[in-house]
Design a binder for these strands. Sequence first.
DNA 1: GTGAAAGCGCTAACAC
DNA 2: GTGTTAGCGCTTTCAC
Lengths: 342, 342
Amino acid sequence: MSAKKVTLRDIAEHLGVNTSTVSRALNPKTSKMLTAEQVRRVQEAADALGYVQNTMAYALKKGRSMTIGVIIPDLMNPVFPPILKGIMNYLNREAYTSIIAYSENDMELALTEIKRMKGRQVDGFILAGAFRDDFSVDYCVDNNIPAITVGRSVDKDVVDKIVIDNESGMQQMVEHLLELGHRRIALIAAPQNISDGYERYRAYLEQLESHGIEVDESLIVQAEAFSQDAGRKATGELLSRNVPFSAVIAANDLVALGCIEELERNGVHCPDDVSVIGFNNMPYLDQFRVPLTTIEIPRLRMGEKAARVILERLKKPEMPLQHIVLEPRLLVRSSTARCRDA
Amino acid sequence: MSAKKVTLRDIAEHLGVNTSTVSRALNPKTSKMLTAEQVRRVQEAADALGYVQNTMAYALKKGRSMTIGVIIPDLMNPVFPPILKGIMNYLNREAYTSIIAYSENDMELALTEIKRMKGRQVDGFILAGAFRDDFSVDYCVDNNIPAITVGRSVDKDVVDKIVIDNESGMQQMVEHLLELGHRRIALIAAPQNISDGYERYRAYLEQLESHGIEVDESLIVQAEAFSQDAGRKATGELLSRNVPFSAVIAANDLVALGCIEELERNGVHCPDDVSVIGFNNMPYLDQFRVPLTTIEIPRLRMGEKAARVILERLKKPEMPLQHIVLEPRLLVRSSTARCRDA
DNA sequence: GTGAAAGCGCTAACAC
DNA sequence: GTGTTAGCGCTTTCAC
């Protein structure tokens, strides 16, 4: 078998034609310029020699790399693989390739990766870990590189975005808890510099008010990250305040898991003493020790949509800013129960 | 800010020097050819103009893309993200980029992806989903593209490999169960065309024999995949045979989870009636309803090693075939208990 | 319908 | 120490 790389020239020489003929024959958009016979000959030779187009040369020539850069905060957070899969599914279908990097929730690192990918001539970016004010997004905008955020979005209206309806999610959570008779509902808020964190916090305030529940500031604690550890810590703080509560809305499932752990460590049981509700419906959650009630988000579709929109954007740079909102859905399991005092 | 791409030439013109001077100044390996002053000037200009090297042009010129292709079976299987992370960590540190594709456990698809990546001039491959006899691996060998398998390996000694010691893993499992008094130990074997499946099956036979337990073929069932669903099905079959058993060794954690589910559906409780043991220690397993006893494998390190070895291979094509074996470790949780009849 | 030739951005002989 | 130049593999305008 061939050890050397087979190029257009190899085929051309083999056939005694010009490289441009080969190039034209192999490209469906230009092959109609040639006789069907010629096209067939070239294609056969290409197959026989094991030709594979050199994407680098193509990219250099055309100024498009058929590559999309994807930045996610963290590979280990189970929310992201399905989003990634959605992205890759769609991109593959369109003959695009994705290149992936993680930012560890660090804007500086994100920017470094973006620059690196810019060097690789990516045609656009899908950003899954943006902050509300994010200079790595600004960099894309300033450098005229198409970008879209998926999930976490930026405040400024400068790039396309795929988001989930946090207000609706929070409404479903709050109404579920109210129906169960809960009135003292604590919130472990996510970082406020992330759109999901901020929006859910705002929505929590609104929903309580619109349902006639007075907001008690001492029931709101801040998680410093979307992690189990942060959930434990925040719950510790909540507990230390010695205010009564019968339910906790957590920033996401991981935080909820940490919350339950810390509660139990203090002899407070879920859902008997306190109901806990998460967000995201991470994989296998139904099989956990305490199957979490949570909000399911359409992760695969988020990824697919993001891929679809970024490719559209590449084709139509002047298209109006896209702002796609996906609906989340309450999933009731057994971490929430009727309020004892109700 | 700049909308256009900044090239070497832009910097050269801006400074009134030749592009080669700029090229040399920006490359640490050649910058010593120039005066320190010159290097400084160039670097400043590059920063000021926002220069980012065009990796495509570099790759085309050098014939190396600084890219490694990574093929995994499935993004959603929680075993792979940590391996990926290990790979990406190491590769990034060495200024390499990874491009990832999934094969859905389909050799044909894997080959398609490999060809696509070959077109992108990847310098080598890390294959995480190989079969024991795998023509996509052969393709790499035939085409002289460096490749390494991580985890699942091929039978032929043709590429470097990172594996875990399945024999040791099985020994730890069997000895643990024997200590608990189990004698009727069933096996839900993984697909036999995958090295891990085959090796664990062989090791199961050996370990039972070397501990003086007679192998009962009716205690061995075949899972058709490394999935929860396959675990359920296989367990159903095992149950239908109506042979007594007090412990099950599952192909992996997912299969074990499916097994437990099916057992309970039939009124058999874990670990009270039957002990179940998994493999891999997937994330969050300790928090599941039945915290699985399992074998922990060093996934992050597997990824890092694979990345390290493939880069070594690139540097030293003549280096002897690497065969690195990593040790797994038994993690006792509560899906295994003393045998009731013991 | 096909060939010739230029050039994408970069590096590395080879000059001087 | 720095400039000149060729060429990596491809597409595409311009000839014919």
